[in-house]
Amino acid sequence: MTHSASALLRYRSRDLGIAFTAIALVVALSVSTDTFMTPGNLVNILDQIAVVGILACAVTVPMIAGVFDLSMSAVAALSAIMAITVANRWGIVAGASIAIVIGVALGTINGLAVTYARVNSFIATLATSMVFRGIATAVTDGQIVKADDMSLQTLSRPSPIAGITWATWLLIGVFAIVGIVVAKTVYGRNLYAVGGNPNAALVSGISVTGTRITAFMISGGLSAVAGLVLASRALSAQPSMGTGTEFTAIAAAVIGGVSLAGGAGAIWRSVLGVVLLQLIANGFNLLGAPTIYQQVVQGALILFAVSLDQFLRARDG
């Protein structure tokens, strides 16, 4: 019972196409520019992907379970606002902790709306994102909330190791933990089962409701983490921060090969998708190409990635 050689090759090429594309881009940019392969630029790229990278990890969890979370940037904004408010009074540790608690709580609300109220996850999280942002505006009166304490900025500063910023380390930590939970644990396994066929999962004694609610709790909590990184950049938070970032995160996941239908994908894929999008942006920058075309290229890439996936599915079917 082994794979035949060609089947293995096909499996691999489908699996690693995204990695090859990223490597090809790295090589192309190294050759065509002197500035790409410099420590400064690489550190910069890694710092820039931190927020979207964390959100991409976050959104992949519900996506594998067959549901979407479109409220992530709203959760990030609301929890960052609360974080700074609390931090100004009780210190940064309390602020960061409260942000994550709020993120998980808002995720729970999303989960309950999708499972018990049986609202389609697209609509449910779109609706809750309006609610969350509305609350954020109400809490702040629409104003920017400034941090009194400079310690929040630590996240945006370089760490002693290789000059990489602490935000990058946070991304690496989130990537490692969520990656392991999804790929290696029983809970991760349940995510795939629920996304692949919820009815079969139910018959197999897996709680579809519980699995999905937990998935939203994870994406909510991680959204709060992303919100902290965003807040550390400006040392402030405001209701409209990060608007639309979840769509970039979902696009990155799709480019990486996470299925829109659920049941298939991996955390590393989403992160690689983020890297790919950032490499394109960086390339435009370094080559001095007009950045107005950057979105055209990124949009085309999304179309290409999804149609390639459909094509491979059709051929293998």
Binding site: R189, Y192, A193, A200, A201, V203, S204, S259, G263
Partner: peptide, 17 residues
């Protein structure tokens, strides 16, 4: 409908419970 997750492997399906 409710027996198998067709996109997944024999192993993933068989060991689901």
């Amino acid at each position: 409908h409710d027996g198998l997750s067709l996109v997944h492997s024999v192993r993933e399906n068989a060991s689901l419970v």
